[in-house]
Structure formats: C-alpha cells, structure tokens
Design a protein around this nucleic acid. Structure first.
Lengths: 171, 171
DNA sequence: ATCTATGCAAACCGTTTGCACGACC
DNA sequence: GGTCGTGCAAACGGTTTGCATAGAT
C-alpha cells in the first residue's frame, strides 16, 4: 500500500484514512489486547499482496517472512479471527476450508469460482445490493450481508478442456 | 409426497413424472449400483419432509425410522453423495457443515440465513439468473450455477432481540 | 508485577476410508 | 457365485483449545 501526500492509503481501489496496521492497533486497544511482534508481522504479510488465501498459505508465507518473528499455527488462526472481527478481512468458506480476502478499504464485491482450477474472480454488481434489499423487505428480514458465488469454468480452463466426466453422465 | 391421478408427484411446488425412489433407482441402475434396503429407507426418510438438514439430523431421523433397517453413519455419508450426484439433493456448506435440501422437482431458489437462529428461508429471484448470466458473459466465464446466501436477522429473532455484542463494538 | 499472547501438542468435529463380512443380481 | 454395499473403527484435515511459558504494558 502506498501513502500519498494527503495522508490516505490506497488499498485495492478505495482510499482510507489509516493503514491496516493502524486500524488493527485501534481495534486491539479498544479490546484491551496487546500489540505483539507476531500480530504485526501477520498484518504486514496479509496486506502485502491483494489475494485470496487460506490459513495454510499464510502460514507458508510467514515461514519465508524476512521479519524475524515466527508465528505458530495456533496464533495464525487466532489472529485471523481478530482481523475478521476488526473488519480488516472478510472470511468465506469454499469447499472445506476457510478463505480470506481484504475487506478494509476494499469495495463490496462477489466472486466467480472456477470449479476446474479453483480460481476466484471478483466482480461488482450494484443491482445485487438492490436485489437483496428488496428480498429482505419482502420477508421482513433485516439484511446485514450476503455472499454470492457464481460457479462455472473460467476462460483459461475452458480452453485446455480435457473433458472430465460430468455428474449425471447417464448411459 | 402425494401421487395424483395423472401419475405425477407433487414435490414442493413442481410436478415431476416419477417419485424420488424411482428416479434414484434409475440412477443406480445407470451406474451399475444396487438397490439396497438402506438406500431405500434413506430416500424415504429424506423425502418425507421438505426441509434443510445435515448428515447428523438425518442419522437421527433414521434411528427413529419405523422401517427396520438401520443405516450406519458411513452409509449415510456415502448415500448423500449419491443423491446429490443423482440430482435429487442439493448440497451447500453453511459455516462448517454440509447442509442438504431437495433438488429434484423443486424450483431453483436462494436463501436468507438468520444468523441468530440459523433458520434458512427460501426465496426465488429471476433477476438473479439474468444477473449471473450477464456477469459470466462479461468475464468469458461459462456459468454452471450459483449460490447466494443473504444473511441477517429474521422477523422472529428481531422481536426477541436480547441484544448480543456486535463485532466492532468499538469504544 | 500483572495479565495477555504464544507455542506446543492434544483434542475436536465433520467427513472419509480400509477392511472383513453380508447382501443383492 | 461374484460383486457391490455395509458397518465398524480408525484415519483424516482443518480448526480449536488447555496449559505452561514468554512477553507487553
């Protein structure tokens, strides 16, 4: 992330007034939690790249991290929960495992999920927001969020298509 | 499910030309699999009620089943996979666990998920189908399906609201 | 000094699997 | 009779937790 002269940070596409570190520190303080080596390294590593990742990938990255402190598996899991609570990360569940992505300073969006290569492609849709509000109203349901995953096959995989058996390939 | 004089079955809201049992049998035959006691009881139990359920609930129901045959945990898991492959059930993942619902003869729909009581409320939206196609086209992505879960608080829970702490209750 | 955070390893929980026995065609 | 299915119990994989120690305030 880059800081410009007006003291804001570019994260993804949106400018926000403080860095993830700063924001996380605020969260920690508000909860009476402490700013530790490992929490710092972790936030740095997470916001170094704009990617989807799971706990294991993060643990892998932390292994190679230049910053000295090593972070145990348990601590990674505990910190991920905190980052979600702090509003810095968004968590979703894909298949069995939990997948995380940047939330703070990043616009609302949804995903195309390629069932061949597991890629996640982001897209934005304002109509969807309108739609979810309408549905909520219709059912006296107080909407707080949504998760849409459109599955299918991405352009790349559609190319090198070495035809797998499809379910219900009767006969 | 009830059979009427025109030999179709009412499952949920749509009429189909054969019962889940029959359809499952077809699937099994097409795969060279066998029609066993336990698969029969299982399909009966699953289609007795129109509900969302997980593996454990089903195992529970099978325990009380009047039909003699008992079905082991392993068999339940194996059969659920088959029912999904056969197009009789749809599987989704909510939090950690797999949740199943009727697919066969039941219209495409999505869900409102109450984060307080975990209830799932179904709704239909044709605009969503249009939307997902549009997005797919835009990204050269061959769409095969989607999963939308709108989360929030249902009417009931909004009433007896005994205010839990909300994440990000800073200060 | 106090009290939270960490690391380790064991526990957990839903799900899957190897294997010997039983049931279907 | 030959296979496929089942039950059991053990294995699995991601995640959580209890506990003693290290570290932040």
């Amino acid at each position: 992330m880059l800081q410009d002269d007006s003291n804001t940070f570019a994260l993804g596409e949106v400018r926000v007034s403080s860095s993830p570190q700063e924001r996380f520190d605020e969260y920690l303080q508000s909860k009476g939690k402490r700013t530790t080596q490992q929490r710092r390294v972790l936030v740095d590593t997470v916001f170094e790249r704009h990617d989807h990742f799971d706990a294991d990938e993060l643990i892998g990255l932390l292994g190679k991290s230049t910053e000295g402190a090593k972070v145990s598996r348990a601590t990674v899991y505990r910190a991920l929960d905190e980052l979600v609570e702090a509003g810095l990360l968004r968590k979703m569940t894909l298949g069995g495992r939990a997948v995380y992505e940047h939330d703070y300073g990043y616009p609302q969006h949804d995903h195309l999920h390629c069932t061949e290569c597991d890629a996640l492609i982001e897209f934005r849709s304002d109509e969807l927001i309108a739609l979810r509000e309408a549905v909520g109203r219709e059912h006296q349901f107080r909407v707080t969020g949504h998760r849409l995953i459109v599955s299918g096959v991405c352009q790349d995989c559609a190319g090198k298509r070495h035809r797998r058996q499809s379910p219900l390939d009767l006969i």
